[in-house]
Simulated scan of single mutants.
Amino acid sequence: MSKTSRTVVSMPKTAAKGEIVPIRVIVQHDMESGFRHTERGVRVPRDIIRNFVCTYEGVEVFRADLHPAVGANPTFSFFTVATQSGTLEFKWSGDNGYASSVTSQLTVTG
């Protein structure tokens, strides 16, 4: 099942060739660990993002595997080098068939 998550991607729209590009992605997700119980003692089922991948023109530049100890709305901060104008795709998947993605464009100058 594919769902849309509220996602915020912070990165420059342009960069000089060879420049280091900072990227920050925040994914809105409750990240239920499976260890919490309701007031009535019923266990809340686990529902976490299990992995996050960023590709730049189809080449993987960042990957993270997540575990139940990660808090809600995880934030990923990393860097890549501006090599060519193109698309960065951010994909994540998790429990219960959860999957979503978003893209950003980077224009490389010089």
Rank of each mutant, 00 (worst) to 15 (best):
V81N: 03
G94M: 03
E32I: 01
M1S: 10
G94F: 07
A16D: 09
V53D: 12
H67F: 08
K91D: 07
P12G: 01
Q84G: 06
V59Q: 12
E39Q: 13
Y98P: 05
V108W: 02
G86N: 06
G97I: 00
V27H: 09
A15I: 15
N51I: 05
V25Q: 05
T38P: 06
T14E: 08
Q28G: 13
T107A: 10
S85K: 07
A15L: 11
T83S: 13
S77H: 03
K91Y: 06
T87C: 09
F76V: 10
R50Y: 03
H29D: 02
V53R: 12
W92A: 02
F78Y: 15
K3R: 04
S100P: 00
R63L: 07
A99H: 04
V9F: 02
F35S: 13
S77T: 13
A16S: 09
F90C: 06
G41K: 05
N73Y: 01
I20R: 14
S5T: 04
H37M: 14
P12F: 11
V9A: 06
T14V: 12
H29W: 11
Y98S: 03
F90D: 12
V21P: 02
I20L: 05
R50A: 08
Y56Q: 11
T7M: 12
V9G: 07
A72E: 14
V61P: 04
W92Y: 08
Q105E: 13
R36S: 13
F79T: 15
W92I: 00
G34W: 00
F52C: 02
I48H: 00
R36P: 03
